[in-house]
Structures are given as structure tokens and as C-alpha cells.
Design a protein around this nucleic acid. Structure first.
Length: 1034
RNA sequence: GGGGAAGUAACUCAGUUGGUAGAGUGGGGAUCUUAUAAAUAUCUGGUCGGUGGUUCGAGUCCAUCCUUCCCUACCA
């Protein structure tokens, strides 16, 4: 191949789609894994998205991170297997189907039929899968979609059962009550995100009630906002650390928190005793309402840290049936659960039998008043959750539920978490760490339909047992089952019974399914159908080296993975976790359908390209900060980075193809290449080093920003721009070979460098530049530190700064760069350093000579300031006085002496100090009368006197520029030869004559003719109106 | 209410161990071009959220308050 393909003009959408097809056709993912056979594995776990709902932009960011890291690690030489997964169970799926079928509660579902309902759930899941596949392919997320793990597969469920069986066998699964928000009208519990939607401010009656102490005529004062829960009271709870008062008021004796005593009792009361909360523990009292009988010991004081003294009385009414804290307290003290309310929210006993609990509040207050148990009542406004579907106030209900006793091995969780590397670290240490410290038991069961069935069977005799595999189920089943057709979902498993080993009776399965987070948390095992398959090589697939998900997974997947693996294997299932935050709209608001500020990723892919979107998301802010999505930023990335990359390639290929040159056929040794090449190679290799460092701590943002900076500033705007003439040369000199070598090497390197982040453009570039199959099979470039020359980089920076200053100086006096000037002066101390770079400065600034000024005082005034960093640590508080002392010195002479290495004695605060060069910073300011610019002690002085010669040359340069512009507007080819006609005054004509050869060479003109013709296009040459016309040579 | 993160130019963000605030975008007027719907330099622009403290010196460390976002929670 002697020809470098031009980049296609197809729309990004079309181009990227073609490349994606190319990857599929050539099985690039499979090959990238196959060629790393035997290499160190880098284990990655894909968090399964819920296949319920369309993929959005927030999915694109997480997957961009995952993909970039996996591609990077692959290119680094690791073997990175990537198995897709789908989370297919759970309430969100059920709700979706309920809506679709217009079912509004569980009764409806059961009437519709569980078989049919679950069939619909299964279909619903797969209807979204297609969109996810499309998005995955389109964004270039390289993952194996053809062999995914799916949580609804029998194999998957079997692995989950195996895990549950382990928990059960070790006695870590128990049945208890879970308090959950419950809509009594709909007859169903609500998930927390549903609860969050329905908060409303309501007014309710709050009461302070008197609970009589059993062994004395004394009363505990207790506040509640829900009088209807009082019949279920079984305990009072106080804070063990708080001080409580026993007081007398109006001949009655009360207990109340010291802090709140005035708020509750007013000012007039007599303090009888101060008691610490802890000392009230187990003090018994009489049941407030004796409508419900307790079957265990109850009605005594308990302690709990959650009790505060901000509201109420500091003594909390505790009804385990209706509150989470209450329920937990109940468990700690083994209290009974009194439940006089049925599933429709009505009292089944008590005088208020048949009425909805909240409607009974007033009657209950009347009853309390009548019994003399009411201390006071008041109305209060507060937030209360309502059912978002029917507006019924929700009740917090204790429902029987199965738990995993996480609290038993909480310490192990914390310990394992401490070994995980979190990016950023605070998510693991604080957010997740704190959460683990306070972890409660995991409520495992759900009284629903579409999920992994709980594998527990119960007998009438009270015996329970669990089943750990299909085989075990078949062997123990009363019914005859077929290994090949067995289906583990409801309702089929509900019909399977097993024989009780205790009493011989028939056991029935507990009807619940399990929390779908348990499904996804089991994936390290279940994705490989462990331990039924792959158990021999499991250690190679566990634990993950890397996972990456949104911050919302702290309580979700991160947690469920950790709990399950800690139990099963004793270690954390992941070594490194990269966490990403949300995507907000450009004003920093959360995207939501109701606000209408969401963005459709597919539209962005089509319009700007997946590469640009991926690059932008990485570029705009670090993964772990909320990303404000702004389309303008996306456009900027597209033009700044992607079009620059394409243009550099286009430039290179244009000349390589025109000259029929292939840089792979020759090689100039690095040390023989020009300074400019060595400089850009040094920059490039420094970049490789930096990128490797940033990526080692998953800071993709820094890496991407540095790459973009290099491409824009160093490669395009300096190296290529400065090297243009080297490409034009007709002879194949070593210099020309060098520029081709260098450009080619860097372009190929860049294609690889960029590949993990922008897989499409890198592929296009790489395949245009090489004969290889794919950039994603290549090795990631590694810095050649021998080519890094930081001193050279410094020198070039200096030159670039000087050039900038020179331009600024020209600007001051309005002499454009095309007008040559005689000379500039720069600081003599740089002579050694940049002597040989002078031609570069001359050309950039269009000056005839660069002069190093030796005696600066001729042009400059000096001032001296302390170098705080050095002097501050030595002189301490005296630096301020030092500053004043320095100001009094004759700066010009002091600078010379210090530069020469002399020490100067200086009196500061009556003490003599030895002043050396390091203690001061010299600043220079231009003296009046010089055209110069100064910045950071760098300066350029411009000699602005223009001789006749310079002015003529200026005309010539101007003349050339105009002709070149006209060539362009006339659409001439680059190599077309032309003839120039012009008219104009004598001054111009003379200059043209003088520089005729130069003009001809620059413009590829064979002939220049001065004519008189009014039809010529009028141009302004530095104030001289001149007509110009071009014509192609025949 | 609890936990976490953040607050720097009009906007998006850098700012390493404390050393006297920086880039891009935007806006203004210029320049340059045989790669660029481009580029180059330049001008414009800041009580580093507020207040205290430590220090010779604080965007950076400490305390406290304010604001925004996220997670979580009917704490009676």
C-alpha cells in the first residue's frame, strides 16, 4: 500500500455504523480476547441493567467508562473477558406489566393468572433488550451480548438457590416482620421510590398520653402523631444517655426528658428526681389499652439511641407493628407484635372495629380523654407519604418477611470493604463504609410474583427446609418431575411439595419470591452457573479486578455483591470500584421525563457521533462529579479535537499521496532528526507517560484532557504548522524523511492512544495508516523515555513564549507579521539556550535578525521582591521588613551583583542579613520609549524602523498573500501553475520587479505581467490599490 | 433528621507538599493561512461562598455558618 486512504466524507452516523459492522463481521472482541490467551486476566463484572425501560444518557457515561477501561487493559496485554448481563426480575417489571394489562392490585393479578402474568413479564423484559443491544453496539461498547447471563434463566436461578441454601443451612435466614409502606386500598406494599413520589403535608392530631407506672401512681408522658397505633403499644423507649426528670405538677407525678420538660409541662412544676435514661430500663407500666392481648412479656421501658429530645417528651411510644425503629427495638427485647389492623387498614378488634385507622384518631382521643389518660393534644402539620396511585395515606405495616442475618457478619463486611480500592476513595470510606457500619438485616422476601422464588418449604409442624439445586428438588419432591422441563418460576414451583423429615407430612413452598438485588448480587457465581459448572476454574474469574457503576449502586449492587461474596467466599468480590455520578442538564438539574430535560442518546450518536459523545462525557468533568450535560460542550469537543485529528491526518495523507511517499520505507534515526521533531517526540512520549499514570488511578478525565491538549497545541498548532514547508520540498531530503517519519509515528501512536476512549475514529485512522485488522487488537503505546528531553521541552516553551511576546509587540505598534522588520532584542541570558532556534523565531516573527541584549539596564527598570518560598522559611516574620529593605536598594546594580553570585549584606530590623540570589525575585519593567512586551520576566524588544528595503519586501509578501487567496477562491489545484496580471503604482511595480523570482516561486507563477486593465480585481496592498488577475498557464 | 459531595472569571473547569490565582469557552478589536465551517496572539474579565482562627504567608490547614446537588429516612 503506497496510498493513505482519504477519510470518508460520510456522516458520522453512517461511518460509525459501518465500523461497528466491521467489528462484528471480523469478531474483533472475540479476537481481542483470543490473542491474549494465557496472559494475566483482568476480571471485569458487568452490572446487569434492568431490562425494563429505555437506555438513557446516564447509561452511556457508565458504559463509556467501563468500555474505556476494558479496552485499555486489553491493549495493555491483559485478557479481559466481558460478559453482558440482564437483570430481569422484580417489581419494576411487574408494575410495567400491570399498567399494560390495566391491573391495579394483587387480587387482579391472581385473577388474571400468575402463569399468564409472569409470561407477560418475561415478554416485557425481552422487548427492551433489543433497544439495549442497539445502544450497546452503536456507542461502541465492546461486550459479549451473545452469551449474556440472564437472571431469569433456570441455571442462574439454580446458582442463586445454591447460595440461599448455604445461608439457610448456616442458620442465617430467618422469618421476621418487615415494616413496609403499605397502601391499604391497593392492598400492596410500595417500593421506596414510589413512596418518595407521594409526600404531602397533612394536618394531624398529636397527643401526649399518660402511661401509668405499674408499681407507683406515676406517669410516663409520651407523645405520638398517630393515636391509632396506641392499641398496639408494647413498650416505651428512652435514650440511655439522656437525663429524665421525675416531677410533680398539679398533684400528679410525671416522667419526662429534662431537655423537653419546659416545652411539655410549662414553667410550673417541682423536680423530684433526676434519672438517667439507662436507669429506667425495664421499669414496667400498665398497658394503655387492654384491647389486644400480648403473648409475650411486654409493657416495660426500653432504651434506644435513636430517641432524641428534639420533639415530644423524650419518651417514645413503641409499637413494633407500625414502625421500623419500633420493630427493631421489639426484636432486641423480644417484644410481641400486636396487630389489631387488617390488610385493608381497618381495626379488627377494639371499640373502633371496622373503621379505617386514620379515621379513628378522633374517637381514640375522645376515649383517652374519657379514661383520664390524655395529657394534652395539639394539631401539627407534617409530611406524610401517600399512595401515588390513589392518594390514600400509607400505613407502615409489619408484614411477615424472610431476612438474611447480615448483622451476624457485619464486621467481616467492613473489613472486606476496607481492602477494596474505591475511586473516588470517599465513596468507599465514607458513604459505603458508614452504611455498612449501620447495616441491618437484609429483608429478602417479596410477596410478589415475578422473581426468583424463595427456595424454602414449610411444614404444618413448623419445620422449614431449603432446596439447593434442581437435582435436590427432584429427589425430594412428592410429585414426579422431569429434569429437562422443570421450570423454577412461580407458579410452577408453588405446586411442588416435599416430604417433611420431622413429621412425614407434606411441606409447601413459602409463596414469596426474593429481592431482585439478591439476583444481581449473585452474579459472580451465577453468571458461570457456579458451582454446577466452571467450579474448577472459578478462581480465575473471581474476584473482579474492576467494576464500575453509578453512585446509586452503593446501596444496590455494590452492597448485594459484597454481602453475598463475603458470605460465600469470605472476601470482597471486587478489588477496584470506579464510581460515576449523575448526569444533570446544563443548569445542574436532574434529568427527568417530567421536566422534559432528558436527552436521547441515539439522536446524539447520529448527529455528533458516539466518539464525540464518549469523549465529551469523559472530558467535561471527572466521572465521580455530577456531569452537567451541555450540547455546546459536545460541539466544542467535536471541532477542537475530532476535526483537528482528522485534519492532521488529511494534511499528512495529502502530501504523502501526492509525493507517493510511504514513511514505512525509510527511517531517520531519532538523534538525526531536527530539533522540532525531537521536541514533538519528547512531548509525545511525556504524554504517554502521563496518560499511563492517570489511567492507573482511573482518572480518564485527566488523560483525555492531556491528549486533546497535545493534539491541539503541540501537534497541530506548532509541529505541523511549523513543518508545513518541509512537506512541500520537491527533493526527498533527510529533513523531509524525518518529518514524514515523525508525523507517521505520532499519528499511528495517537490512533492507539485514543482507541479506548474513541474507538471509531481511532479505528478509521489506524486502518488508513496501517494494514492491520484493527486498532483494538494492537498494543497500547508505551513511553520511550529515551526520547523524553525535558530541557528541550523547556527551551521550546521559551521560544514559543518569545514568539508570543513578539507578536504582542507588533500588535502594539500595528505592524502586521507580513511586514518584515529589521531586528528584535531578547534577553542575553538565553543566548546559550536557544541560539540555534533563532531561525525559528525569525521566521515566526518575520524579522531579519535576533539580537541578544547584554546590558538590560539600558532598556529596563528593575524591582526586587522577596522570594517568599525561599526567604519566608528562612527569615520567618522578617520577610515583610525584608521586602521594604529591598525596595530601598538600587535594583539595577544589586541584580548584576547577585547574578554574578555575590552576597550582599543588608540590614533588616537592625540585623545584618546575607542576601543571595535565591532570596529575591527580580521583576523587570520596560523603560519608556521602547516597543516591547514583558511577561514573567521574559521580554522582546521590537525595532520598528522600516527601511525602504523592508517596505518593498512587505509589498511582495502582501502581493503573494493576495495571489494565494485568489488561487483558493478560483479553486485552483495545489500544483496548478499560473500567470499573474496586475496593475498598480510605481512603488508596487518596483517591489514586484525586485522580488519577482521569490513571488513566482511562492505562487507557482510562470509569468508576471503588468498591464492596464480596469477589470482587474482591486486589492489593497498596504494602502496601495492594486488590481490583480490570475490565469492558469496553458 | 442522618450521611456524602461541591461552591474559584459571564459559562465549563485546573490549581500537586501552604509561597502571593490559571486554561478553555463567550464578548471586543486585530493578525495569519498551498491542512482546518480552522488557527494565532491580544484586550475584557476574580473579596477563590461568608466569618473567625493557625501561620511571616491560606484557594489550599482548622472551626463555624450559608447555598446547591446526591443518597437515606413517616425517628415517636
Amino acid at each position: 500500500m503506497s496510498n493513505f486512504k482519504p477519510l470518508t466524507d460520510l456522516s458520522v452516523a453512517k461511518k460509525e455504523s459501518e465500523i461497528a459492522d466491521y467489528w462484528d463481521d471480523n469478531e474483533i472482541l472475540a479476537k481481542s480476547i483470543a490473542i491474549r490467551d494465557g496472559k494475566t486476566p483482568f476480571v471485569f463484572y458487568e452490572g446487569p441493567p434492568t431490562a425494563n425501560g429505555k437506555p438513557g444518557i446516564h447509561h452511556v457515561i457508565a458504559r463509556t467508562l467501563k468500555d474505556s477501561v476494558c479496552r485499555y487493559k486489553t491493549m495493555q496485554g491483559y485478557q479481559v473477558k466481558r460478559k453482558a448481563g440482564w437483570d430481569t426480575h422484580g417489581l419494576p417489571v411487574e408494575i410495567e406489566v400491570e399498567k399494560q394489562l390495566k391491573l391495579s392490585n394483587k387480587q387482579d393479578i391472581e385473577a388474571y393468572g400468575i402463569t399468564e402474568f409472569n409470561q407477560k413479564c418475561r415478554e416485557s423484559v425481552f422487548s427492551y433488550e433489543q433497544q439495549w443491544r442497539e445502544m450497546t453496539k452503536r456507542m461502541g461498547y465492546s461486550i459479549d451480548l451473545d452469551h449474556p447471563y440472564v437472571t431469569l434463566d433456570n441455571d442462574y436461578i439454580e446458582s442463586v438457590w445454591w447460595i440461599l441454601d448455604q445461608f439457610f443451612k448456616q442458620g442465617l435466614i430467618y422469618e421476621g416482620h418487615k415494616i413496609l409502606p403499605y397502601c391499604s386500598r391497593c392492598g400492596t406494599g410500595l417500593a421506596s421510590h414510589e413512596v418518595a413520589q407521594g409526600y404531602k403535608v397533612i394536618k394531624s392530631n398529636t397527643v401526649v398520653v399518660k402511661f401509668k407506672r405499674k408499681d407507683a401512681e406515676e406517669y410516663f408522658l409520651v407523645w405520638t402523631t398517630t393515636p391509632w397505633t396506641l392499641p398496639s403499644n408494647v413498650a416505651l423507649t428512652v435514650n440511655p444517655q439522656e437525663v429524665y426528670l421525675k416531677v410533680r405538677q398539679n398533684e400528679e407525678i410525671y416522667y419526662v426528658s429534662k431537655t423537653l420538660s419546659h416545652k411539655v409541662l410549662g414553667e410550673e412544676f417541682e423536680v423530684l428526681e433526676e434519672i438517667k435514661g439507662k436507669d429506667l430500663e425495664y421499669v414496667e407500666y400498665e398497658q394503655l389499652m387492654s384491647f389486644v392481648k400480648a403473648d409475650k412479656k411486654a409493657f416495660f421501658v426500653t432504651v434506644g439511641d435513636y430517641v432524641t429530645t428534639e420533639d415530644g417528651t423524650g419518651i417514645v411510644h413503641t409499637a413494633p407493628a407500625f414502625g421500623e425503629d419500633d420493630y427493631n427495638t421489639g426484636r432486641r427485647y423480644n417484644l410481641p407484635v400486636l396487630q389489631p389492623v387488617d390488610e385493608t387498614g381497618k381495626f379488627v378488634t377494639t371499640p373502633w372495629q371496622g373503621s379505617f385507622v386514620m379515621d379513628a384518631d378522633l374517637d381514640i382521643i375522645k376515649w383517652l380523654h374519657g379514661e383520664g389518660k390524655l395529657f394534652k393534644k395539639e394539631k401539627m402539620e407534617h409530611n406524610y407519604p401517600h399512595c401515588w396511585r390513589c392518594q390514600t395515606p400509607l400505613l407502615y405495616y409489619a408484614k411477615p418477611s424472610w431476612y438474611i442475618e447480615v448483622t451476624k457478619f457485619k464486621d467481616k463486611l467492613v473489613e472486606n470493604n476496607n481492602r477494596v480500592e474505591w475511586y473516588p476513595d470517599y465513596v468507599g470510606e465514607k458513604r459505603f463504609g458508614n452504611w455498612l457500619e449501620n447495616a441491618n438485616d437484609w429483608a429478602l422476601s417479596r410477596s410478589r410474583y415475578w422473581g426468583t422464588p424463595l427456595n424454602i418449604w414449610r411444614c404444618g409442624c413448623g419445620h422449614t427446609t431449603s432446596i439447593g439445586s434442581r437435582k435436590e428438588l427432584i429427589e425430594n419432591a412428592v410429585e414426579t418431575l422431569d429434569q429437562t422441563t422443570i421450570e423454577l418460576h412461580r407458579p410452577f414451583v408453588d405446586d411442588i411439595h416435599i416430604k417433611c423429615t420431622k413429621c412425614g407430612a407434606t411441606m409447601t413452598r413459602v409463596k414469596d419470591v426474593i429481592d431482585c438485588w439478591f439476583d444481581s448480587g449473585s452474579m459472580p457465581f451465577a453468571q458461570h452457573h457456579y458451582p454446577f459448572e466452571n467450579s474448577e476454574n472459578f478462581d480465575q474469574l473471581f474476584p473482579a479486578d474492576f467494576i464500575c457503576e453509578g453512585i446509586d449502586q452503593t446501596r444496590g449492587w455494590f452492597y448485594s455483591l459484597l454481602v453475598i461474596s463475603t458470605f460465600v467466599k469470605g472476601v470482597a468480590p471486587y478489588k477496584r470500584v470506579l464510581v460515576n455520578d449523575l448526569i444533570l442538564d446544563k443548569d445542574g438539574h436532574k434529568m427527568s421525563k417530567s421536566k422534559g430535560n432528558t436527552v436521547n442518546p441515539f439522536e446524539l450518536f447520529d448527529q455528533y457521533g458516539a466518539d464525540a459523545l464518549r469523549w465529551y462525557l469523559l472530558y467535561v468533568s471527572p466521572a465521580w462529579t455530577p456531569t452537567k450535560f451541555d450540547i455546546e460542550g459536545l460541539k466544542e469537543v467535536q471541532s477542537k479535537f475530532f476535526s483537528t485529528m482528522r485534519n492532521v491526518y488529511a494534511f499528512f495523507s495529502l502530501y504523502a499521496n501526492t509525493d507517493k511517499l510511504d514513511p514505512r520505507t525509510f527511517f531517520i534515526n531519532y538523534q538525526d532528526r531536527p530539533e522540532l521533531d525531537q521536541w514533538v517526540l519528547s512531548k509525545y512520549n511525556s504524554l504517554l507517560k502521563d496518560v499511563e499514570m492517570d489511567l492507573s488511578v482511573f482518572d480518564l478525565t485527566k488523560a483525555v484532557r492531556k491528549i486533546q491538549e497535545f493534539v491541539n497545541e503541540d501537534l497541530s498548532n506548532w509541529y505541523i504548522r511549523r513543518s508545513r514547508r518541509r512537506f512541500w520540498g520537491t527533493e526527498l531530503t533527510d529533513d523531509k524523511k524525518a518529518v514524514y517519519n515523525t508525523t507517521y509515528e505520532i499519528l499511528v501512536g495517537l490512533a492507539k492512544l485514543v482507541a479506548p476512549f474513541a474507538p471509531y475514529i481511532s479505528e478509521e485512522l489506524y486502518r488508513s495508516l496501517t494494514d492491520e485488522l484493527s486498532v483494538h487488537l494492537a498494543d497500547y503505546p508505551v513511553a520511550n523515555t529515551q526520547l523524553i528531553d525535558s530541557e528541550l521541552e523547556t527551551r521550546m516553551d521559551l521560544v514559543r513564549n518569545l514568539v508570543g511576546l513578539g507578536r504582542a509587540a507588533r500588535e502594539q505598534v500595528r505592524i502586521k507579521v507580513r511586514q518584515p522588520v529589521q531586528q528584535i532584542l531578547i534577553d542575553g541570558k538565553y543566548e546559550q539556550l536557544i541560539d540555534y532556534m533563532l531561525p525559528l523565531i525569525q521566521e515566526e516573527l518575520n524579522v531579519k535578525a535576533v539580537v541578544f541584549a547584554k546590558d538590560l539596564s539600558q532598556y529596563m527598570n528593575f524591582s526586587l521582591k522577596p522570594n517568599f518560598k525561599v526567604a519566608g522559611s528562612i527569615f520567618g516574620p522578617k520577610v515583610k521588613s525584608l521586602g521594604k529593605a529591598l525596595a530601598t536598594l538600587d535594583a539595577a546594580s544589586v541584580v548584576l551583583r547577585l547574578e554574578a553570585g555575590e552576597t550582599i549584606a543588608l540590614e533588616v530590623e537592625g540585623e545584618l542579613l546575607d542576601l543571595v540570589k535565591d532570596y529575591v525575585i527580580t521583576t523587570i519593567v520596560a523603560k519608556e520609549g521602547f516597543t516591547m512586551t514583558v511577561e514573567d520576566n521574559l521580554f522582546v524588544i521590537l525595532d520598528t524602523t522600516l527601511t525602504k528595503e523592508l517596505i518593498d519586501e512587505g509589498y511582495a509578501r502582501e502581493y503573494i498573500s493576495k495571489v494565494q487567496q485568489m488561487r483558493k477562491t478560483n479553486d485552483y489545484e495545489m500544483m496548478d501553475r499560473i500567470k499573474i496580471y496586475f496593475d498598480g503604482d510605481e512603488e508596487i511595480a518596483q517591489a514586484v520587479k525586485l522580488y519577482e523570482d521569490y513571488i513566482k516561486k511562492e505562487t507557482l507563477a510562470d509569468d508576471i505581467e503588468r498591464i492596464n486593465d480596469a477589470s482587474l480585481e482591486k486589492q489593497n496592498l498596504n494602502g496601495h490599490e492594486t488590481g490583480l488577475k490570475l490565469e492558469k498557464s496553458s
